[in-house]
Amino acid sequence: MADTATSLDTTPLHGVHNELDARMMAFGGFEMPVQYTSIIEEHMAVRNDAGLFDVSHMGEVLIQGDGALDFVQHIVTNDASNLYDGRAMYTVMCTPEGGIIDDGIVYRRAEDHFMMVLNAANTERDLNWMRSHNSMDATLHDISDETALIALQGPEALGIAQPFLDQDLDDLKFYHFWERDGGTFLECDQALISRTGYTGEPGLELYVPAEAAEHVWNALLEAGHDRGLKPAGLGARDTLRLEAGLCLHGNDITEETNPYEAGLGWLVKLDKGEFIGRAALQEIHERGPERQLIGFVATERGIPRHNNIIKSDSGDVVGTVTSGTQSPVLDTGIGLGYVPNNPEYTDEGTHLQVSSQRRSFEVRVAEPPFHTD
C-alpha cells in the first residue's frame, strides 16, 4: 500500500509500528522499523528468547502451470527437481556471466506450483528478469501486496507458536513448511508456516494474508509475553544475520559477485542441466574463483563498516569490507569482505587490518557463525 506522504511503500503492519513508537527508516522502497527500543536489546532477545519481525517488504511470486518446474530450473542455480510438496530450498539467480541477480527461497506447494521469495529492493527488477526468460509459458503471479510475512525467531519461537498449530513443530524440519487454510492458523484464510529464518536461531517465517497481519502479530506478541518475546526491527535483523555469517544482497553478493567466491558454491548444481549462467559458473568452478568472501573478528577496538579497506598485516591493500558491525554477543567488531583467493589472506586465524579514513585496526580471519563457541 502506498504512503503518499513519503513516496515509500508501507507494510500491513505500519500502524502497529507507529503504535509501538518504532524508529522508522527507508529500506528497499518501504518505510520499515529499524528498532523499537534498542538494537542490542532486540538482538539479545532473539539470541536468548525470541523476537518478532515484520518482513512483509519481501516479494512473493507464484510460479504455476505445466512448465513451472522447467522454468524454476532455468532461472535458479540450485536443483528444484529434488523438492517435494512441503519442501523449500535456498538458491540464487545468476546472469549469463555468473553474477548474482538475487538470492531467495523457492517453495514447492505442488508439482506445478512453486512460490519464490525475493528481496524487497529487487522484486520489480527480478520479476522483469523472470518474465523475459519465461520461454516455458509458466504463469507468474506477484502476490507481494496481498501477503504479509512475519518472522518469529529465537530459542522460544517454536514454543510460542505451538499452541496455534495442530501438529508438533518439532516435526517440522529445517527448510520445510506446512500450509493451513480455513482459519485453522490464527483464523487466517490461508497461511504458510515455514521453518526458515535469517538470524542463526531456530524460528519460523509466517506468510499470511495482508488483512490478517495485525491479528497474527498481536496474538503472537501476547502469547510470547511470558517467554521474553519482543518486537525486533531491521537493525537487529542485520546484526543477527551478520553474527551468523549470512550474506546480504547488495552488500556481500551482487551482480558483480559469483556464488563460488561468495562461499555459495553449494547452491550451484552444474549437473542438473542447462540454466542461466551455467557455462560461466562451470568455468569459474574449474579454474577456481579469483577472490573469496571471508569473515573476520576485530582483535582491537574498531567497528568494520561497508567499503572499509582490508589490508595485509604488512599494510598492502588486499580487499574491501562488504558488511560490518559491532557484535552484541562478542562485544567486538565483526565483518565480511572480499580478499584474493590466497591462503595468505583467507586462512582462519590470519591477521589483517581494516582501515577507514580515520584509523586502522587489526582483525583476525574467522569462520562464521561468530556468536557460537
Rank of each mutant, 00 (worst) to 15 (best):
C247S: 11
G183I: 05
R180Q: 07
L293C: 11
E367S: 15
P163H: 08
D21E: 13
G29T: 10
T199V: 04
E156W: 00
H113V: 07
Y345L: 03
A213H: 01
T184I: 05
F370M: 04
V46Y: 08
I101Y: 08
E214M: 00
E256T: 15
F361R: 03
S314D: 15
F30P: 05
E290A: 14
A5M: 07
E348D: 13
G98A: 09
D331N: 14
V365D: 04
V363E: 03
L8C: 09
G315D: 08
G233Y: 00
A2H: 14
T196E: 02
V339Q: 06
R278Y: 01
P340F: 06
G263N: 07
F361C: 03
D271R: 09
D85G: 08
V117H: 05
E222V: 12
L62H: 14
D252I: 06
T95E: 14
D347G: 03
C94F: 04
V117P: 00
T139C: 03
I193H: 06
I253M: 07
R131L: 11
E187L: 08
H43T: 13
L270A: 07
D102L: 05
V317Y: 09
C94S: 14
F27G: 00
A279K: 13
I143T: 09
A262S: 14
G99C: 08
S360N: 11
P155V: 11
Q326W: 11
A120W: 07
M25E: 15
L204H: 06
